[in-house]
């Protein structure tokens, strides 16, 4: 039971990182990306390869994974961010579809559909460590960095772009650069989460990095509350605990848990958008405004 809960907690921390970093793009900068799982995947493969080929050091794996995801997100964000609002959603959807294909076909790096197996347990300076403390530490650092950035000038810049892009530009803000930085920060975080995920599961394949996963992460952010520090974390914990909770209910047959889960997600999202459009932790008056 303890092993089960530790596993769940580690996954909650990893998905907490994913939701918190996606929230920087969605909640603060108003960039709706449905491709966050791509950068989660890039980080996971990078981290896994480092551990498999080079050294099973968690810090090295996380650093490289963050860099790979962050830098690649920049290459992709710069052209994609030139399109506005809903067009970016479509562009990110296209990216997600391309990446899923790439992940299943580029066998030398990703292991194809079968994925990468036998990833060693994480070590730090040669000593084996658990993924839960690692993931919690990474989550804590990322939340601290996010809080510091969002409270400062960069956060104001992103929120000003979210609320009125042309006015932000008219006040001298380089909108494309600020958006690209926000995306890079968010995706670097997703990369770190990817490395942790690979080291935790000791196995990765494309199933974890597809559109469903991107939508799940987006749902965590929206249900928890966009533009808040803790909302995405709450969303991650709820959405991860839900299948576990449903599995414990005796009147739902084990084979139907998946279907019930999807229906509960859908219903929760719909009710939330009607009654609390800003999410569970979000500001009540938001979402109801016309701005």
């Amino acid at each position: 039971m303890i092993a089960y809960l530790t596993n769940l907690a580690a996954l909650a921390a990893i998905f907490g990182i994913l939701a918190a970093t996606l929230n920087v793009a969605v909640g603060y900068a108003g960039i709706f990306s449905v491709a966050h799982a791509v950068f989660f995947g890039l980080g996971a493969y990078a981290g896994a390869q480092i551990a498999l080929v080079l050294v099973p050091d968690a810090l090295v794996a996380m650093l490289v994974a963050g860099l790979v995801s962050g830098v690649l997100s920049l290459c992709l964000a710069l052209p994609a961010l030139r399109v506005r609002g809903e067009y970016f959603v479509a562009a990110s959807l296209g990216l997600q579809m391309m990446a899923t294909t790439l992940f299943s076909e580029w066998k030398t790096v990703t292991g194809g559909i079968g994925g990468l197996t036998g990833i060693p347990r994480p070590h730090i300076f040669g000593v084996e460590v658990g993924t839960l403390p690692l993931a919690l530490a990474a989550l804590g650092l990322i939340l601290l960095a996010t809080a510091a950035l969002m409270r400062g000038a960069f956060g104001r810049t992103l929120r000003s772009i979210r609320d009125a892009e042309s006015a932000a530009e008219a006040l001298g803000k380089n909108v494309a650069a600020a958006k690209a930085l926000a995306v890079a920060f968010a995706c670097a975080g997703a990369g770190v989460a990817g490395a942790l995920f690979a080291l935790h599961m000791q196995f990765v394949n494309v199933e974890s990095f597809n559109l469903d996963q991107s939508v799940l992460i987006m749902a965590m952010v929206i249900i928890g509350g966009t533009g808040t520090l803790l909302g995405p974390l709450v969303g991650a914990v709820i959405l991860l605990s839900l299948p576990a909770g449903l599995a414990f209910l005796p009147f739902i047959p084990a084979t139907e848990v998946g279907a019930v889960q999807q229906m509960v997600y859908g219903l929760a999202m719909t009710l939330l958008m009607i009654f609390r459009p800003a999410g569970l932790v979000g500001d009540l008056s938001r979402g109801k405004s016309t701005a």
Binding site: A153, F154, R156, D163, S166, K173, R286
Partner: peptide
């Protein structure tokens, strides 16, 4: 702007403060 284009969900002070910050980098 004729339609003002305020940063609606930011405080009055943050609306003004952000007008003094022009760098898009993580810090000013």
């Amino acid at each position: 702007f004729q339609d003002l284009r305020l940063f609606t969900h930011m405080s009055v002070r943050d609306n003004i403060r952000t007008a003094t910050e022009t760098s898009a980098w993580f810090w000013q």
